[in-house]
Amino acid sequence: MSVPAFGLGTFRLQGQVVIDSVSTALELGYRAIDTAQIYENEAEVGQAIAASGIPREELFVTSKIWVANFAGDRLIESLKESLQKLQTDYLDLTLIHWPSPENQVPVEAFMGALVEAKRQGLTRQIGVSNFTVDLMKQAIAALGADNIATNQIELHPYLQNRKVVDFARSQGIHVTSYMTLAYGEVLKDPLIQQIAERLHATPAQVTLAWAMQCGYAVIPSSTKRANLQSNLGASTLILSDDDMAKIAELDRGHRLTSPTGLAPDWD
């Protein structure tokens, strides 16, 4: 099994807003949905999925285990709670959302619990999020690279995270880009706008297409039907080698997400 190249993110969307976003996306043809325990919207995401009538096997649902649920039996218990909220018997992908603050729970402990969750059939694939090269090495030492489907990281033209990407690729670990549009910052970039104009595309389509051509999965979110529909067009947009090379030069290490107490020592 592989991680779909294109899906819907639900970060910061709650209540009726996330129900409407997921419902519209599914209606438009999205089939991969990404949520997390800490988003506090799993129940609403589950409600929208159930109401869509789309067979479960046609969907790819991802959620993420919060750091408070790493210790002891809590990881598997919390995953079962997520499944109840999402109204499903299994997840397609379960990720460790952030590394354990100050290594309170060792990597091998929570990754071991995730492997057990997979063994029990609670999730088809497992992976990590916000892991540095060192943390990926620890996870690989604990359970082998073959068991890690993806590392979901902040990745956009202004933060291309090459050390993490190169190491993940060397181990056969897929990379999922979150915040691909950098909260909209890259949509104002003159180069991105210039490429978009030439290709009769939107800046968002260009940025998402860049990430997918780099080999990353993307999970953009939106509350607007027009944007949800437009973003889908990124899947068929082809950028030239010259476009790709120019966007590669936009990298400036501009990190937008680094929460105090959670963030590791970034590469």
Rank of each mutant, 00 (worst) to 15 (best):
R252K: 15
T10P: 09
T207E: 00
E116P: 03
A234N: 01
S230I: 12
T180E: 01
L26E: 03
L93R: 02
L232T: 04
R162W: 12
K80A: 11
L237M: 08
Y183V: 06
D89L: 14
L75V: 02
K163C: 10
T94A: 11
H200A: 14
I33H: 03
N231G: 07
S78N: 12
L239N: 05
L239T: 00
E42N: 04
G46R: 04
T202C: 03
M136E: 13
T35R: 05
S230A: 15
D92S: 04
L13H: 06
D134T: 15
G46K: 08
V175E: 07
S82W: 07
T207K: 04
S21A: 14
S82E: 13
N147E: 12
L250E: 10
Q120N: 13
P190I: 06
N151C: 09
A48C: 06
A149I: 01
S222D: 02
E154W: 03
S52C: 11
I49G: 10
Q37I: 08
Q152T: 10
T94H: 06
R225Q: 13
I153N: 02
L199R: 14
P157Y: 05
R255A: 10
I126T: 06
L122H: 09
F110W: 11
A68D: 12
V107M: 14
E40H: 07
L199Q: 13
Y90N: 14
N151D: 15
K224S: 12
S258C: 11
T150K: 01
T176G: 04
A209G: 01
D267L: 02
I38N: 08
A68Y: 11
N231F: 07
Q193A: 02
E58D: 05
T123Q: 05
T207Y: 01
Q138C: 05
A245W: 02
V17W: 06
A43T: 09
Y39W: 09
D243H: 02
S78I: 03
K85C: 14
L208D: 05
A50V: 07
L262A: 10
T150H: 07
N130M: 02
H254M: 12
H174F: 05
S23F: 10
